[in-house]
Simulated assay, not measured.
Amino acid sequence: MRSRSQAPQGKSGPDTSSGSGVALAFRLGAEFVSGVLVGSLIGYGIDYFLAISPWGLIVFTLVGFGAGVLNMLRAAEGRSRGGGKAL
């Protein structure tokens, strides 16, 4: 008979439950959205101070888009290697 203080033995591999997948999806979405927002805000600030509207916003929104995609790829790659940790 097993005592209550002993934990049940199970798999020791990576967590593949659906909760883990949902957490990863939220993280990837947040990585992308934050990249685009930061790029857009920087572009807006450049437009405001240098009076070159709308070019700063356009360029830095695209740079933010690229940064968001790159961050998503890094996070997904770190997750797929089994480490679960990315930058």
Score class of each variant (00 low, 15 high):
Pro54Met: 10
Ser18Gly: 07
Val22Arg: 03
Gly10Phe: 10
Leu24Ile: 06
Trp55Thr: 06
Ser18Gln: 09
Ser34Trp: 01
Leu73Ala: 13
Glu77Val: 11
Val69Gln: 03
Ser18Phe: 12
Ala75Glu: 11
Ile42Arg: 01
Ile46Asp: 06
Arg74Trp: 05
Gln9Thr: 15
Gly39Asp: 07
Phe60Val: 04
Gly21Glu: 08
Leu24Pro: 04
Pro14His: 09
Gly13Ala: 15
Leu73Met: 11
Val63Ala: 07
Ser3Thr: 14
Val63Phe: 08
Phe60Trp: 13
Asp47His: 06
Ser12Gly: 14
Glu31Pro: 00
Phe60Asp: 04
Tyr44Glu: 09
Val69Ile: 12
Arg4Ser: 14
Gln9Val: 15
Gln6Gly: 12
Gly83Arg: 15
Gly21Asn: 11
Lys11Phe: 11
Gly66Cys: 02
Ala25Cys: 05
Gly56Val: 03
Lys85His: 11
Gly83Asp: 11
Arg4Pro: 08
Asp15Ile: 13
Ala23Tyr: 06
Trp55Cys: 04
Leu28Gly: 02
Phe65Trp: 08
Asp15Gln: 10
Gln9Ile: 15
Arg74Lys: 11
Gly78Glu: 01
Ala76Pro: 03
Ser5Cys: 13
Gly19Leu: 09
Pro8Ala: 15
Arg2Gln: 13
Gly19Thr: 10
Gly45Lys: 00
Ser18Trp: 09
Ser20Met: 10
Ala7Glu: 15
Gly66Tyr: 02
Ala75Cys: 14
Ala67Phe: 06
Leu50Ala: 15
Pro54Leu: 11
Tyr48Arg: 14
Gly64Leu: 02
Arg4Asp: 13
Ser40Met: 09
Leu70Ile: 12
Pro8His: 13
Pro8Lys: 13
Gly19Gln: 10
Gly39Ala: 04
Ser34Ala: 06
Glu31Phe: 04
